Each structure stands twice: as C-alpha cells, then as structure tokens.
Amino acid sequence: MFSFILLSSMLAAAPDAAAPPPPQPADDIVVEGVRQQRERVHQFVKALDDVANLGQIGKFHSPVCPAVMGLPAEQNRRIAERMKQVAAAAGIRTGEAGCAPNVFLIATVGKKDTIEALYEGFPTYFRDLSSKEVRKLAMARTPSVAWQIKNLLSADGTILKKTPLNGFTINEGMSSGSRVRAGTMPQFVASMVVVERSALTGLTITQVADFAAMRAFADTDPERAAGSGAPTILTILDKGDDEPLPVTLTHWDFGYLKSLYATSNDYYASYRRGEMEQVVRKELEKAGQ
C-alpha cells in the first residue's frame, strides 16, 4: 500500500504575524494513496481475465497435476514440482504422486509445428476452439500461447450434460441463479501452455515454472497483463535484455492466483472481481506494498 508520511515542524508565529493556513491532515494524504492503490488493483484484476461483466471467470475445481516436456528430464521434473508448490501456496488443490496430468507445459523449437501436430493427433485438447482460433494460436508471433479446456458445473458442483442433437446444456442442479450468481460454474478440465525454447534461455527453473503457473492455473495473457502497469511474471518473456526481470511470482501475481481460488466462480464476473480485489489488496498489504 502506498504510504505517505507528512513531516512538519512547529513554527512559532511572531506577534502580529498572520497565522499560516492549517496544514493538510496526514490522513487525507494516506486516503489518497489508498484510493490510488485500490484503482491499481482494480485495473490489474480486470486486465488479467478477458471476461464480460455478466460472464464467469473459470478455474480448476479438480486437483491440478502439472507435466512438463521438451526440456531435459531433470528440468522438466523440477519445473512441474515448483508449479505444484505454487498451486499449494495459492490454495489450489494438487494431485497425489503419479496423478494423471491435466496441466501441460510444452517447450518446443517450433510452436507452430507443435500446435498443428497436437491439433491433428489430440483434437480433444482443442474442443473449445474453432479451427480459425487454432490457426491463430499456431500463427501467433508471441513466444508463448496458452488455452484451457473447459466444461460447465452446476452451482452444486455437478458436471452438466449436453443434449446429443443440439448441444444444449442441461442443468439439473438445485441452485437457481440470481442477479449476482449464475446457476453454473465454468471449470478448467485441462490447461495447455506452449512456449518457444529459445525464449527460455537464461531463465531459472523458478522463473519458468512461475510463468507457466500464471498461464495455466488462470486464463491470463501477457499482453493484457502488461497493460495493467503492475509488476508481474507474465511479462518475463517480453522484457528486453537490459530490463530487470522478476525472479519469481510477484506479490501481485500471487494475490491474483489466491483470489481466483479463494472465491466462488458461480458469481458473475463484475461481482466476483470485487471479492478478488479484496484478497489481492490484503496480500499486498502483508507484503508492505
């Protein structure tokens, strides 16, 4: 939290001298700092997701189980382990040893070829994307892309079924919607992160893992994150050679992950963001920011 300290000295007024105007109370300055911090947090939380106010922000409801491929075996293992540690610290459930992977980080020499091969061999990982959207992923000039495979849960936590003919979702849950809550919750079934190996040169295990965690455990985008103006690990692949890099998740990043999984996503985005912002502000206050 921004803090401003007003230092003043006692001035003795000479006889017949006009009294100086009273100083602005220190509380007013502190309140202004709080107001600015609230606005920064609001912009950060809103920038990290791309959801309409009457939409819903997705997250994992099942335990996450990261798997990393494309790097030396020991690096793959250590990155996956670090991702699990980040998840546990942020309040995200993690799978037991030997769990079936549902979070994938793929480091590749050719992002385009890898995505096209995945699309041909494992189309289920693209079931929420149109062919045009898949092509856009493959042709993206950014060093990394990420997407989530989703389904819908009822507000009671039951997986919703679709009718075979028209694909409409059938909600048999007992909880009804309201002005702030929907009758459903979007759930991440799996997350995919594909990154060019050349973009990882010079980065540590922690930096790679924390970047992947922010892209996989939440539907985030580095370009949107950069626009927020807040410090974040999400911009680590886009920094110039002479720019300082975060060595780990920033307090802003951690606060966002924690807020995402500490709040229920049956709420509409406009209402839920308010709850998420409170969690982020508390994390920043703990860190003295």
Rank of each mutant, 00 (worst) to 15 (best):
T204H: 00
I159A: 07
A190I: 02
I205D: 14
L200P: 00
K136F: 03
S144N: 04
A155F: 00
K136L: 04
K136S: 06
T206K: 14
Q148E: 01
G167Y: 05
A140D: 07
R127L: 06
E172H: 13
E196K: 06
D219Q: 12
V145K: 05
A190M: 09
T158R: 11
P123R: 03
I159R: 08
T220V: 04
E172T: 14
V134Y: 02
T201R: 08
R141I: 06
M139Q: 13
A209L: 03
L129W: 09
R215T: 03
R127V: 10
A140T: 04
G121L: 08
R215D: 02
M185N: 05
M174D: 08
A199L: 12
A216C: 08
P164Q: 13
F168L: 11
K132T: 13
R141H: 07
P164D: 12
Q207E: 07
A216W: 08
N166V: 13
D219S: 14
S175Q: 11
S175P: 06
K136C: 00
L137D: 04
G121T: 08
A190L: 08
D156F: 01
W147I: 09
D156V: 01
T206G: 06
G177W: 04
G177D: 10
P186R: 07
K132S: 13
Q148G: 02
G121A: 13
I170K: 09
K162T: 12
Q207Y: 01
R141F: 04
S154Y: 01
R181L: 06
K136Y: 07
R135E: 13
V180N: 12
E196D: 06
I159L: 06
L137T: 03
L203F: 01
K161R: 15
G173H: 11
D128T: 15
K162D: 06
R127S: 14
I170Q: 14
F217R: 01
K150Y: 10
F168K: 11
G167M: 04
F122T: 10
E133Q: 15
D128W: 09
M192P: 01
A190Q: 14
A146P: 00
D156Q: 09
T124W: 09
G173W: 13
R181K: 15
L203R: 00
V208E: 01
G183D: 15
V134N: 03
S131R: 14
V194F: 02
L152D: 09
S176M: 07
Q207F: 00
S176V: 08
P186W: 11
G177A: 13
Q207S: 07
D219K: 13
T204Q: 01
A140V: 00
L165G: 01
A213R: 03
K162H: 07
R127I: 09
K162Q: 15
V194Q: 05
G202V: 01
S176F: 05
A199Q: 03
D221T: 10
L137S: 07
E120N: 12
A212H: 04
A138P: 02
L153K: 05
L152W: 12
S191Y: 01
A182L: 07
V145C: 02
F168E: 12
G183N: 15
A216R: 05
